[in-house]
Design a protein around this nucleic acid. Structure first.
Lengths: 263, 263
DNA sequence: TAGTGGTCTAGACCACTAT
DNA sequence: TAGTGGTCTAGACCACTAA
């Protein structure tokens, strides 16, 4: 069956195994709800519905794609499980956004040993455009020498320097990003990236190590050289598993810890 | 509606809000499929179906609980998402077990920087029964002074000491656990715990810090005192979110890293 | 009151596995 | 061929939200 371009079978015949030719997608063979999920994801990616906005109702989407509401529901179920959309009973389904208290801590795993997390003081040490070194290019799926935005910042909690991190972003996607924009902007960086540059982070992987503070880090953090620090190297992805951020954070874990849930 | 003890409404009336009185459970108000999920979980916990075994089919369970197959399916969907059961098309649904290649690395986040993970050499340094200190008792939900099994072991990869860890287990649950049993047993410890002591770990949380190797750790790991090590403090839970293991691991991250997926 | 997501049912067919 | 989980449909009613 071909959602959005022909009628479904009338006898309840399942559609798995038939290609999706709608919306210009290349033929794929997968369950109908997966095809619908892909079509919805395309609309999210293309900005048909913007972060924070209300999406069409399940009934509307079912009519649009010419499938049953149950099929749309299963597609949206998976998108909700992946945090791409948020369902609200009685209201509708909304495109997920980083502009929510709830979302602020999704990518921040460093927690205070006691008390609740709170926003840190933020000091930008350096913001500049450079050419990608081989390693950076490899992780961001760029070519060596491509333009990247480099950011270095120090975050403090209750006046105590705790997070020293460096970021590399594809220059192509973040053309107008300057130190001023970063300083002006209140709220999480991912909110800025989403609103001002149309790039939403939806997933990330981190490799974590214990390292000794070098002279530079030690000075910024206010600790002796050689102090053990937690080093987290993050690669963040947007729609389509496209890498769009490299981040290397050094965490002082004297009064904080990195929380990992294993399940 | 009361699954397993009365007939469902015949007109498709939803059952949410009515108590589950079956199987002696205290009255709860939740969707039918959540009640069914709770009943199935009870059967898993009580050992009606053992790890690795085939569970009754969805049709059978639907008949047993007097609900539709779709309702049982939704309950099992969630159990599968939580890794309590494993679905295999054409075969049936199986109780999850630690005796699977697939499950070995679910709780092992330390990965080699290059290559694929492989089983480490295992050296048990100490196995003894002690009384729980206040901190251990608190985390394991015991009383200070309660009996606990204490295990200290060193794991090496390719001859290089990499993981030095200590475990504390409730003495009540692990009565026959001795150094001999641990050394004899081939395979992951969680397999031993599951098969020999009837305790399955289903979830865990880890707090991670960077610490400096003390004299003892340095000697075991073959590194200078003060070397930065990753410290992971794990609390593992079995059915009903009951804490049943405390583990404190020191990881040498020279050629390994801790992998964390953020989503 | 109307519209939304959430639950539940019943029945059909598909894909896979084992006999 | 029979049995299992996987997909899809259609329709009903519930719980929640907002006008």
């Amino acid at each position: 069956m071909n959602p959005a371009s022909s009628s479904p079978a009338k006898d309840g015949t399942a559609a798995s195994g038939t290609p999706a030719a709608g919306a210009g997608s290349s033929p794929t063979f997968s369950p109908l709800y997966q095809q619908i999920k892909a079509l919805i994801t395309q609309s999210l990616q293309s900005g048909e519905w913007k972060p924070g906005e209300l999406m069409p109702s399940e009934v509307e989407l079912a009519a649009r794609f010419k499938v049953s509401q149950g099929t749309v529901r299963k597609a949206i179920d998976e998108l909700a499980a992946e945090n791409l959309v948020v369902r609200r009973q009685g209201k509708g389904t909304f495109v997920a956004t980083h502009h929510e208290e709830r979302a602020h801590y999704r990518f921040l795993r460093l927690m205070p040993d006691e008390g609740v997390p709170h926003h840190p003081d933020n000091r930008f040490i350096e913001v500049k455009r450079i050419r990608a070194a081989a390693e950076v290019a490899r992780l961001l799926d760029l070519k060596t020498g491509d333009a990247v935005v480099y950011i270095k910042r120090l975050q403090s909690f209750d006046g105590a320097p705790t997070i020293l991190e460096e970021l590399w972003l594809p220059g192509q996607l973040f053309k107008g990003l300057t130190a001023e924009r970063l300083v002006e902007y209140k709220g999480p960086m991912y909110g800025l990236f989403e609103s001002e540059f149309g790039t939403r982070m939806i997933r990330a992987t981190e490799k974590i190590r214990a390292v000794a503070a070098d002279a530079g880090a030690a000075e910024y953090m206010g600790v002796p050289e050689g102090t053990p620090l937690l080093c987290a190297e993050r690669v963040s992805f947007t729609y389509g598993d496209k890498a769009v951020e490299l981040r290397r954070g050094l965490y002082l874990t004297a009064h904080h810890h990195y929380l990992s849930e294993l399940s």
